[in-house]
Amino acid sequence: MVLADLGRRINSAVSEVTRSSVVDSNVVDNMLKEISNALVEADVNIRLVISMRKKLKTKIESEDKPGINKKKIIQKAVFDELCELVDCGGAQVFKPKRKQANVLMMVGLQGAGKTTTCTKLAVYYQRRGYKVGLVCADTFRAGAFDQLKQNATKARIPYYGSYTEVDPVTVAADGVDKFKKEKFEIIIVDTSGRHRQEKDLFEEMVQIEDAIKPDETIMVLDASIGQAAESQARAFKESSNFGAIILTKMDGHAKGGGAISAVAATNTPIAFIGTGEHIQDLESFTAKQFVSKLLGIGDIQGLMEH
């Protein structure tokens, strides 16, 4: 994973401290500075980094009592703080229920990877024995229905869409209705890309949501997004109240820091990460695992036992 780079820097900053014979506030400050730089270079929102740095500093100082291993404290504080950054207090992601219709609606910025992720998610649930259907409610983007149709056909997932109906609300409602009648358990609805600057597009999203009453709305976010992540995610949260995030393109070079800022800004957990263009390139996500990977599993093992 490309996160290795960020992980290496954070790790070496921490071990710099753990190696030095005296751990004074100067050493700690240097470590915090280096961690902050690494995070900012990974696109984590700069204000978020500043506040994390303050929190870390307070934590490390407050637990600094005689007889306590300062290095362990530092390691654990950094691990916990990073976890918190991507974890949102251990909020649970959506678990679909068997033998009833679970409607999932995908939203997000243009080109984030919604349509691709729809089929990946469908395959994920189908393999776990659910009866899954896909609905294309993107009537705007050229070739959107063909894209979903070709993906669904390859993956043998039933799909619904229309070449003639231009109203996404109608297509969404019709598709969900049809699959509900046929006793589908998971119905995934793809929507057009949109952004907060265009009110009409957000209104459309709300209308679709009103029409299909999704059990879960999922925001799909490109891992390479930069500083705009936070304001876009906040705006999506306000209008759609999505309950989970899927991070795509984690196979790329970017470190996902922008997206992590979106997680923090909306206090919404990451459910899955996309790691490629192919149907099977989807992994489930846990914050501890993510941060462990970030910092290199070996180093973390010791921390987890505390």
Partner: peptide
């Protein structure tokens, strides 16, 4: 490669 890429251009 990408699904629907040709149809996307045809629509345009």
């Amino acid at each position: 490669f990408r699904s629907g890429a040709v149809e996307q251009l045809r629509t345009h």
